[in-house]
């Protein structure tokens, strides 16, 4: 048991070392880890401040309130710490679903070719054409989206077309490579070729797709919350932004912290996820390493 654990730690160390070759990417990775830590472990240490304190409205940062207070005198820092979990869960659910759809059907289309390819491509083109946000708005008017997993599934079900295109063209170029041709010549079967030959070679692509799908889902869900289309309760960076916006907080000089903190949280999360992909590329694509 001990040796297994040691081995795992060692390989993790090696992975981290590879990731640190790209400084920007590694910074993104660290930032993502910090955000995850803050959002999932943080709430145990920093409980959400729900008490209205009329005498402490819109305070600037102090030792007591690290990020100041909101329109009801509540601590902003506690809201930031508690407001990330939902955003991240929705993003992961949506990202995973989009990536799954894009990778499965993208490789299938690229590899199978012919009618299957034509069909997948036309469906993708159609879904790609329908602007995502207006459709989400219409859906939000017709069905209740207040469950975060449910919201994630809907976002994921709409977020795959651009990724699928990219995955398909990647699969098309992989299909021409020698090892795939060899597998085909050996008649190893489509499933084997897709999951054993193509998908592993597309790991970089899948990881990047997942990251991009996540950022797309963060974009859409915060928008829905911000404009009051998803009735989220509790704390959520989008809800904070929405409240600040609706309260006209942007027009008060003192309220800048209340609106800038969730803005910063969302932008930093987006940026870190995108830059993290650069380091992940190194892990999954050994060819990139040797060049540097």
């Amino acid at each position: 048991m001990g040796s297994v654990f040691l081995g795992a730690v060692q390989s993790m160390g090696a992975t981290l070392r590879i990731m640190s070759y790209n400084k920007v990417g590694f910074t993104g990775f660290i930032a993502v880890m910090l955000i995850l830590f803050m959002s999932f472990i943080g709430p145990f240490f920093v409980p959400l401040d729900t008490e209205t304190k009329v005498d402490q409205i819109y305070q600037t940062p102090s030792a007591e309130h690290w990020m100041g207070t909101d329109h009801q005198g509540r601590d902003i820092f506690s809201q930031i710490v508690n407001g990330g979990k939902d955003v991240i869960i929705v993003a992961v659910v949506a990202g995973a679903l989009s990536t799954f759809i894009a990778v499965t059907f993208g490789t299938l289309a690229g590899f199978a070719g012919g009618r299957i390819d034509a069909f997948v491509v036309s469906v993708t083109d159609i879904v790609l054409t329908i602007p995502q946000l207006p459709l989400l708005l219409v859906l939000a008017a017709l069905i209740k989206l207040n469950n975060i997993v449910y919201l994630g599934i809907i976002l994921g079900a709409l977020g795959w077309p651009a990724l699928l295109r990219a995955v398909r063209s990647q699969a098309l170029s992989l299909k021409q490579r020698d090892f795939v041709e060899a597998a085909r010549a050996l008649d190893l079967g489509t499933t084997h070729i897709i999951f054993r030959e193509i998908v592993p070679n597309m790991m970089t692509y899948i990881i990047i797709s997942f990251a991009l799908a996540m950022t797309g889902a963060i974009y859409a869900q915060v928008a829905l919350v911000l404009f009051g289309l998803v009735p989220f309760s509790g704390s959520n960076w989008g809800v904070m932004l929405s409240l600040a916006w609706v309260r006209g907080a942007i027009y008060f000089k003192d309220s800048i912290w209340y609106i800038m903190m969730p803005v910063a949280a969302i932008v930093i999360l987006q940026l870190s996820v995108v830059t993290m992909t650069r380091s992940l590329e190194l892990v999954f694509n050994p060819r990139l390493r040797s060049g540097e």
């Binding site: 963060i218 928008a223 911000l226 942007i250 027009y251 000089k253 803005v263 940026l271 995108v274």
Partner: peptide
């Protein structure tokens, strides 16, 4: 890279806050 990872509505809000207010 930074510009393309800021959601457009957030950039809109930032423009109002900084340029305007």
């Amino acid at each position: 890279s930074i510009l393309s990872s800021i959601p457009n509505y957030i950039l809109g809000i930032l423009l109002i806050i900084f340029l305007g207010v």
